[in-house]
Design a protein around this nucleic acid. Structure first.
Lengths: 210, 210
DNA sequence: TAGATTGTTAATCGATTAACAATC
DNA sequence: TAGATTGTTAATCGATTAACAATC
């Protein structure tokens, strides 16, 4: 069975992304072959889980041998669609946006911040790292012109997040990474993932001794 | 049954943190009462799920009426231990660390960045927002002196993350929020949560049309 | 009382893991 | 061949959701 006929669990996708990051490291170190037991050592993901995850997408290894690191890297990259360059719109050129745009592992996985948007006149027309900052009202125009991104990162204050989501969806974005701690309303065909580090801290806080 | 006798699923804790953020908003708007069906409208979490989640910790509502927003806020805050101020060590005063320290919702949930650490001599001795930046080698000393934090945020490059984790664990930290895309090795009693936004992007990328 | 909504049980659904035949 | 390791099935485990008696 494959991706078309069977739907892939979200936890599997999350782990696939982990495997890829790990494999890119191994590949950089010129490791050639790896077994599922080795992967467990690197990622803490159960070896059976690893093999099961891969099985949603096909066959990747050789019994008795293991997996070719370069080949597995290539094939997972393709599955996650990071074998090609993926342009990303970044909305919000504040502290967080700036940190995200400068993140080293972005380019390694073929994500490219293609344009930055902000509503602060002091920033518009300047650059964030190497990327032009445009007025938020220009999203549609800029994206249509040449970028044609379908991925957007929302790194604006909570109060503005929904409007920004509406705007990026209108210009063709179908996947949003949202850093504002609010529930975004989007059409069903748009995928949203939320990152809320205060929520993460709260979960950790629960585990503290009294 | 309660927290002592039954273990709470991690997804429940994650949602508890969401509920709290939502309730803080509602409380700020002076909403007095809310039903589980209302909560579903705000958070997209199924109403039965919401009630089930709360049931791990006791009884919170009144049949026919719903939940008192101030009371529920107070009680969830207590469960997540954010009813008191929680000091947090931030390691890494780069772009990301800076963005995190300045995050507005931190203080609302009673987290306080109590000290910042970096290995860049140009930063040590200065401040990040209002907080002193110390040399990384001083973690134990600074934390012992007065802060006594048990929560730490690691926002340093991947290559340094494990050493930093070792250092904070040694000085009494039992919960770590890790932004470096590596698997940290820590003693069993230490809780780690990872935030990896490139991984999040990769999951989104999978969902893009070919 | 009648209507609303909780807390909890039981049913469903889905994800993880162990086991093992197939195969390199 | 013997040993190692895959891919997949079946068993286990855990989380979600529907249903409903209790109760405000």
């Amino acid at each position: 069975m494959n991706q078309q006929t069977q739907k892939v669990p979200v936890p599997t996708l999350e782990r696939m992304a982990r495997y890829l990051a790990c494999l890119l490291d191994l590949d950089a170190k010129s490791v050639e072959t790896i077994s599922s037991a080795d992967m467990e050592r690197y990622t803490d993901v159960n070896a059976a889980q690893f093999r099961k995850d891969l099985s949603y997408f096909g066959e990747f290894g050789r019994p008795g041998i293991g997996y070719s690191v370069p080949e597995l890297t290539r094939r997972i990259s393709k599955i996650l669609k990071v074998d090609r360059e993926q342009p990303v719109l970044l909305v919000g050129a504040g502290n967080l946006g700036s940190a995200l745009a400068g993140y080293p592992s972005l380019s390694r996985e073929h994500f490219r911040i293609a344009a930055v948007f902000d509503n602060n006149p002091a920033k518009i027309g300047h650059k964030l790292w190497d990327v032009d900052i445009y007025d938020i009202s220009k999203i549609a125009e800029v994206n249509a012109r040449s970028i044609d991104a379908r991925l957007a990162i929302i790194a604006v204050p909570s109060a503005a997040a929904q409007q920004v989501a509406d705007a990026v969806v209108k210009c063709g974005v179908t996947a949003i990474l949202n850093f504002a701690p609010v529930t975004l309303r989007v059409p069903r065909e748009v995928t949203v993932r939320n990152v809320d580090f205060v929520q993460e801290l709260a979960v950790l806080s629960f585990h503290l001794a009294p």
